[in-house]
Design a protein around this nucleic acid. Sequence first.
DNA 1: CGGGCGGCCTGGAGGC
DNA 2: TGCCTCCAGGCCGCCC
Length: 274
Amino acid sequence: MPELPEIEVLRRSLEPRLLGRRIVGVEVHTPALREPLDRRALRRRLQGQSILALRRRSKYLWIEVSGGSTLVVHLGMSGRLTLAPAGAPREAHEHLAFGLDSGERLRLRDPRRFGIAFAAPTAALARDPHFAGLGREPLDPPLAGPELSALARGCRAPAKAFLMDAKRLVGVGNIYASESLFAAGIHPARSVARLSAARWRRLAVAVVEVLERAIRAGGTTLNDFADGTGAAGYFQVELAVYGREGEPCPRCGAAIRRLVQSNRSSFYCPRCQR
DNA sequence: CGGGCGGCCTGGAGGC
DNA sequence: TGCCTCCAGGCCGCCC
C-alpha cells in the first residue's frame, strides 16, 4: 500500500512539523522488524541531534539530522509514522519512537512488521545496500517515453512486472502499476520487449500522471496508510481498476478483470487494455 | 541472468 | 458466535 505517493505525502506532512526539532529520546520497543532494529546505532546517531531535512528515495523516507546521520524508514505494508502529542499512550504495534524537544513523539507503528528503520551516515547512503541498486525516480524529473523505453532495455517481462522492478524504476507498486497500465491502455501481461514508441510515451505519461494525482489526493488509504498527522488519503475513490473486479470500466463499461501475475493481483479492462 | 515464486507477518473478511 | 482459511503486497532470496 505505501508506494511512492504515500511516502511523498508522509514526507510533506511531516516536513513542516519536524524541521528544526531536536530528538531528545530514542525508544526501541521491538527487537526486529523486517531487519533487526539496532538500538545502539539509533541512539548514538540520532539522540540530541536536530532534524535538518526530509527526503524521499523510492519508498523510503530519509530524515537527515545534524552530526552527519540520517534516519531511514520504510513502511513495509502496514507501517505508519505519526506525530503523537506529549503524553499520548503507546499504541498497539508501536515498535520505535523518538521523543522531540516539543514534547511530541514521532512513532512507528507497523502491525505486520514488514517495515525497516535504521540510522546511517548521510554521506554513505548512496552506497548503502538498500539504495545502491535502485532505479530511476519517476517524478524528478518527470519520466518521458524514450527514457522509460531505455530503462526496459533487455527486459522481456510483462508490463506489470517491468513497472514494479525497482532496479529499473522505483516507487510503483501493485496498485499504481495497475492504474498506470489502465491509463495507458496497455494489457498487464503484454511483454515490454516490443512496445511501440507511442505506447512507451503513453505509459510514461500515465505513470507520472497517476503518481501525481495520487499525491494530490493524499495517497491511497485501503487499510493502514495515514500521513504524519494521522490523516487518511482519498485516492482510493479515484482508483479506476484496482480492487474493482467485476465492476464496470469507467471508460467503456466492460467488466474489470483480475489476473494473478507473480503472485500479485493485477486489475485491468479487457476492452481498453491490449 | 532474467524472471517467477515463496516467505516474512498480522488483521480483516468471508464461509460454515 | 467462533473457528478456519484466505488474502492483502514490498522486498529479498531461492530456484529454474
